[in-house]
Write a protein that binds this DNA or RNA. Structure first.
Length: 701
RNA sequence: GGGCACUUGGCGCAGUGGUAGCGCGCUUCGUUCACAUCGAAGAGGUCACAGGUUCGAACCCUGUAGUGCCCACCA
């Protein structure tokens, strides 16, 4: 058989993927029944896993985290797809009814932000557009990206069931989301509240607490004269309407004032009547121990006002401009206004002193615009009740985390959970019934496990739910994983998945986070094109422990390209030395041969154990080492005299031995390196050859 | 303020009680034999530090130092 001396992935991958897709075996309903014994005979009888089940009754299910349909695959997606494909291919070979369901996420706010940037470049703005028009355009943009992403997913070799692909805006998903919303309303777990929320003035929407980030910055703390009090503030521009001065009830310095006492105060724009309030929220150590409150624009102040039933007044509008209460400053942007306001305070003799002040502020996680707290009617989900069953399930290990320290992290978060603002003032998403707002995209993706499987009546839901593994980035454990657990338990009464496998970030070669602005983004498709998808995949996996971030070094991928070539050439050697070989006929083996096969069987068994423990980083390394440094370097070398010698029986035994090892190794490597293993498998002279190595049985149990 | 991790050869990481391993890189030699995208041989680490448990500690416990991440409404 003539084979080129180097492995050329460019001639193989598309062809092989087409073969798989055509076979229909990505679809669990179309998987063939299993033979009870594998042709290799390596699998010992009496195995107790589903490989005995020749009907493939036992399901294995992974739902792909719905890919954001707003761009291209990045290196992180490469890792997600590789890990999930490894699990899927492994379980399929083990005889499970294997479903890996692909999905796309409309990714509400994320996508709208991406699209708004595009509009900006074109000199347009969403605020000058009809909402329906904007929605149509984003839908078109999304559907274009969808095709792009699907094709890139194929390039990675993902053996997912495309016939079941779901989109978070599919009609049945939206129906499920509405049904959940209704159920939450019925159970009084969702409420419409006039509450203080995180407002991004650039994006003109509220954000959940998770969608803001803290930024430390140097500011000035201003001490202002407020009647007989000196109060401290970092934001003088919000103080126009302040008419409550708050001190701690135990503060001796202010004991002569009683709760509710009225005092006349000369303030920023003239005289105001101030009321003294005593509240425990005050930190006596901070500033002077006295402050005035601005309930509309500060969460602490809002809480105090709510507790004490105080008036609230809006000072800053939703664009970040001062309202008429600011007098001559009305209409000004708060940033421009602050120095002018401070100047006026000074002139009026109200500025006592200033000091440098280091503190953290909240900014929008997308544009880093300062978050302006605002009071607004929004929909909130009461989380404490929903968190309880989730905590219970996690404590009881009904859901297992890999790596396991995530258990503590998620429990800590669930125990301290706050209500969830699910209203967004954007057009791209699922509309909230009756209003102009849309749902937070995580409200729909939080229902993904049952929504994507067609809850409540579909056959798929009954067969595949609860799913087996949720594999995703550790970064989104609160955004997504925690919410899936809570909503899954709430709606279906069952946990949505049994194992959560969290991978770390994929960083650049120097260990820095990839970002467009830094220009260090590695496009996974560039690497697969250059070195082959198999090299890319196994290069991401070997030695990459779950939860740990991975520095993606091109040298590393190159190293595994060399390994792919080694696999190619060792196979080539075996195939070139099969003269006179008869498939299916077992020759007499020498004791040394038997010993080698026993060692192979042991390696397969060890790899299997590691696979079952989700230690792909070790299983891949084990098989890699076996293939290169045992099979290629030692066994093949040692067989050369027998293959070239005159003893026909010894030659036949040698051929059998090498082919047996090759076949077994290819199966063990297949989850990691699906393309090259398939390409070689197709060339092997086997008796009970399958249509594809994908449905071969795993060589151990 | 609270939480979760990490600290092992030049770099990136495995190893969780029994005399330190992998990949990349490095050195020397070799290569008409499947593969130079190769082979053989090799150099390189007092496992952050201190104390403790143990017959025995990179691994368990306590503390210290440093690094990273997450959560939190101190004006």
């Amino acid at each position: 058989m003539e084979l080129p001396t180097t492995y050329d992935h460019t001639k193989v991958e598309d062809k092989i993927y087409a073969l798989w897709e055509k076979s229909g075996f990505f679809n669990p309903d179309r998987l063939p029944k299993r033979e009870v014994l594998s042709p290799s005979g390596l699998r010992p009888s009496g195995s107790n896993d589903s490989s005995k089940d020749n009907k493939r009754r036992k399901p294995f299910t992974i739902l792909m985290p719905p890919t954001n349909a707003n761009g291209s695959l990045h290196a992180g997606h490469g890792l997600v797809l590789t890990i999930e494909d490894i699990m899927t291919r492994y379980k399929r070979m083990r005889g499970y009814k294997t479903l890996w369901l692909p999905g796309l996420d409309h990714a509400g706010f994320e996508t709208q932000v991406v699209y708004e940037k595009q509009l900006e470049k074109e000199g347009r703005s969403r605020f000058q557009m009809e909402p329906q028009q904007l929605y149509r355009e984003i839908m078109e943009f999304t559907l274009n990206n969808k095709k792009n992403i699907e094709n890139q997913t194929r390039k990675i070799g993902a053996s997912c069931d495309w016939s079941r692909e779901k989109f978070t805006l599919d009609a049945n998903v939206v129906e499920t989301v509405y049904a959940t919303f209704k159920k939450l309303s019925r159970d009084n777990l969702v409420y419409r509240g006039r509450r203080i929320i995180n407002w991004c003035a650039k994006h003109q929407t509220s954000l959940s607490d998770l969608e803001t980030i803290d930024r430390e910055q140097e500011d000035t703390l201003y001490y202002l004269q407020y009647g007989p009090f000196t109060i401290a503030t970092a934001r003088p521009e919000t103080k126009f309407g302040d008419k409550y001065v708050v001190v701690h009830p135990k503060d001796e310095r202010y004991k002569q004032y009683r709760e509710g006492q009225k005092i006349e105060v000369e303030w920023m724009n003239g005289k105001v009547e101030a009321t003294v309030i005593k509240d425990e929220a005050i930190d006596m150590e901070f500033g002077t121990g006295a402050m005035t409150i601005t309930p509309w624009h500060d969460p602490v102040d809002f809480d105090i006002a709510k507790r004490k039933k105080l008036d609230e007044e809006q000072i800053i509008d939703f664009r970040g401009k001062l309202l008429p209460i600011a007098g001559e400053f009305a209409g000004m942007n708060i940033r421009e206004a602050r120095p002018l306001i401070v100047e006026k305070l000074k002139t009026k003799g109200l500025l006592v002193k200033t000091e440098p002040y280091k503190h953290t502020v909240k900014v929008c996680y997308k544009c880093e615009t300062l978050i302006e707290p605002q009071i607004r009617e929004q929909w909130f989900v009461s989380m404490k009740e929903l968190a309880k069953p989730a905590i219970k399930a996690i404590v009881k290990n009904e859901i297992v985390f890999i790596p396991k320290h995530y258990k503590k992290i998620i429990l800590h978060w669930l125990k301290n959970i706050e209500d969830w603002n699910i209203s967004r003032q954007i057009v791209w998403g699922i509309p909230i019934p009756g209003e102009t707002d849309t749902f937070d995209t995580w409200f729909s993706s939080g229902q993904w496990p049952f929504a994507a499987l067609g809850y409540p009546n579909s056959k798929d839901f009954k067969t595949f739910y609860p799913t087996d593994v949720m594999e995703t980035a550790g970064e989104i454990i609160f955004f997504w994983v925690a919410r899936m657990i809570m909503l899954g338990l709430y709606v279906t009464g069952k946990v949505p998945f049994k194992t959560v496998y969290l991978h770390g970030l994929v960083l650049d070669a120097k260990g820095k986070k990839m970002s467009k602005s830094k220009g260090n983004v590695i496009n996974p498709l560039d690497l697969t094109t250059k070195y082959g998808t198999d090299a890319f995949r196994i290069g991401l996996i070997v030695g990459n422990t779950p939860g740990t971030s991975l520095a993606l070094d091109e040298n590393r991928i190159r190293g595994y390209r060399n390994f792919a070539n080694k696999v190619w050439n060792a196979s080539r050697f075996v195939l070139m030395n099969l003269e006179g070989f008869k498939a299916g006929k077992k020759p007499t083996l020498s004791p040394a041969d038997k010993k080698i096969l026993t060692a192979l069987s042991k390696t397969a068994k060890e790899a299997t154990k590691l696979m079952d423990e989700f230690k792909f980083y070790k299983a891949s390394e084990l098989v890699y080492h076996y293939f290169w440094h045992t099979f290629a370097d030692k066994i093949i070398e040692a067989q050369k005299p027998r293959l070239g010698g005159k003893d026909a029986k010894a030659k036949a035994a040698s051929q059998y031995l090498l082919l047996e090892i090759l076949q077994t190794s290819l199966k063990l490597l297949h989850p990691f390196m699906p393309f090259i293993t398939e390409e070689i498998y197709q060339k092997l002279p086997l008796k009970n050859k399958k249509k594809t190595i994908m449905i071969e049985s795993w060589p151990s149990s």
